[in-house]
Design a protein around this nucleic acid. Structure first.
Ligand SMILES: [Mn+2]
Ligand SMILES: [Mn+2]
Ligand SMILES: [Zn+2]
Ligand SMILES: [Zn+2]
Lengths: 148, 148
DNA sequence: TTGCTTATTGCAAATAGTTGCAATAACGAG
DNA sequence: CTCGTTATTGCAACTATTTGCAATAAGCAA
């Protein structure tokens, strides 16, 4: 997997060591990371890098489509490289996250586009709920009637 | 529309003036508000109320299902009363938000539940994209080929 | 290579949101 | 109505995130 150097430059943006480092960090870890975590990892590569730059760079890379961001329930924004787009199911109870095929939401997206005229381009949605395990654990507190 | 006083007490929580005021504020405005906005409005009713209390109360009311929260693209968390659940389409360009029937996403939710075993209970999803107007405005910069 | 333009960074100050803890006050029991 | 238990608040310190601005350094042209 290659960093799209050219892409950025072609669009008039600059290829700075900070941006490359952050992109590299996200590529290596492979999963979601908070800005703070990215900052700490990037610090090893670019000793002088600042948090402000990390925040700004993550937003920038997200806007450019090279990185995905998401709120995964705990209030923290997280980022990851955008190699393959996808969505998520996140457990409210244990924070477990599972992937959802991008294609699995395309249908609804298309339907909603028809109805509303909007062009929908969410590439990293997180839906909340309870994972199978946590459903079991809370089973004794429910009566199976599905009441809220 | 009535504040579910009993509900809260029945669950062992207390019905404080702060909670009532915040609930009232959200009921009156009817739409999404940021914690800061809620704070300023609540301040008129409870002069001594603090921001910490507002943040905590909004989380609490969300957990209790009396309030809905959502990230609507601009990085800000927003809250609103949970009279009728629904979802949203938000324009990345002009921030316009339109409602999406809750039922319109139920289908996918059920499908995903089948596939994954998760129980999905997101009651206020925000999907991002471009509203019809903003699509027109950026039309001249695209070539109709739909490239990213 | 050298110099110029200007996008990007670092810094510091500002704003937003969270948390521990002691004081307060809901509210059920008597 | 009075009292005791304990959930909730206010406060202050702390952490997270954003922003303005001057200094820096990509990247292009010569
Ligand atoms: Mn992801
Ligand atoms: Mn809403
Ligand atoms: Zn779980
Ligand atoms: Zn728009």
């Amino acid at each position: 997997m290659v960093i799209p150097v050219n892409q950025l430059r072609a669009r008039g943006y600059r290829l700075t060591p900070q941006r490359l480092a952050i992109l590299r960090v996200l590529n290596q870890v492979g999963t979601h990371r908070t800005p703070q975590e990215v900052y700490n990892l990037a610090l090893k590569e670019i000793p002088g890098i600042t948090e402000a730059t990390v925040y700004r760079t993550l937003s920038f890379l997200t806007a450019q489509g090279l990185v995905l961001e998401a709120h995964v329930g705990n209030g923290q924004l997280v980022y990851e490289c955008a190699e393959q787009v996808h969505h998520h199911l996140v457990c409210r109870a244990c924070q477990a996250t599972s992937m959802v095929d991008y294609a699995d939401l395309q249908g609804v997206f298309r339907d909603l586009e028809q109805k509303t005229g909007y062009l929908i381009d969410s590439r990293h949605v997180a839906l909340l709920g309870l994972c199978p395990d946590c459903q079991d654990k809370t089973e004794h507190t429910t009566n199976g009637k599905g009441e809220r």
